[in-house]
Every structure is written in structure tokens, then in C-alpha cells.
């Protein structure tokens, strides 16, 4: 049986990769993908921990929830990116700084 640590390692690696992508990419789609990676890392964690809750399977429940929510979020994010593109003709988030204080 694969020990829990392995799952956690993989999830951490995934998370870091996602984070790296989020921070460094200049393309909004790639950032979105990084976010997806981070979400998947967390889902992996939840599934791995769910092994300890055999009665209710709460981990898996949460995983399913998150997957659904992530799909919705991606849809919304893509719409935002499209609108952004329409406005500034670029999907580089650094190009638009209208949020600047």
C-alpha cells in the first residue's frame, strides 16, 4: 500500500508547480492552469486523507465538490480573460494594472 506521505509529496510538488506557474507565467491561461494544478493538489490531499474516514467518506465528497466548483471557476475565469482580452488586446495580466492603488 502506498503510504500517505507519497501522496502528500506529490500533492506538494503539484502545488508548488502550480504556484510557480501562477507567479511566473505571463499568460493568463497559463496562470489559470497553474491554479488548476494547485486545486488538484489540494484535491489529491483530500482524497488521500479520506482514507481515514471510512464511514462518511467526507474527503471524497469534498473532492467532488471542489472539482465541480473548479470547473465553474475556470469557466468564469475564462470569461474574464476573454473580456480582458477584448479590452486591452492582451492576456498578459501585467499589461493591465487598473487595480493599482
Amino acid at each position: 500500500m502506498i503510504p500517505l506521505q507519497h501522496f502528500l509529496f506529490i500533492s506538494a510538488i503539484l502545488f508548488c508547480l502550480g504556484l510557480f506557474a501562477v507567479i511566473t507565467r505571463k499568460n493568463a491561461i497559463q496562470i489559470l492552469m497553474g491554479i488548476e494544478l494547485m486545486i488538484n493538489a489540494s484535491i489529491l490531499n483530500l482524497v488521500a486523507f479520506s482514507r481515514f474516514d471510512k464511514v462518511d467518506n467526507t474527503g471524497q465528497m469534498f473532492a467532488l465538490f471542489i472539482i465541480v466548483l473548479a470547473a465553474a471557476a475556470v469557466a468564469v475565469a475564462l470569461v474574464i480573460i476573454m473580456n480582458l482580452y477584448k479590452r486591452v488586446k492582451s492576456i498578459d495580466p501585467n499589461q493591465s494594472d487598473t487595480l493599482r492603488g
Binding site: 511566473t24 495580466p93 494594472d97 487595480l99
Partner: peptide, 8 residues
């Protein structure tokens, strides 16, 4: 200064 408006 923190509020650069840049997402990243």
C-alpha cells in the same frame, strides 16, 4: 506601493 495593480 504594494497595491501595484498587478495580479501576480
Amino acid at each position: 506601493g504594494m497595491q501595484s495593480g498587478k495580479l501576480q
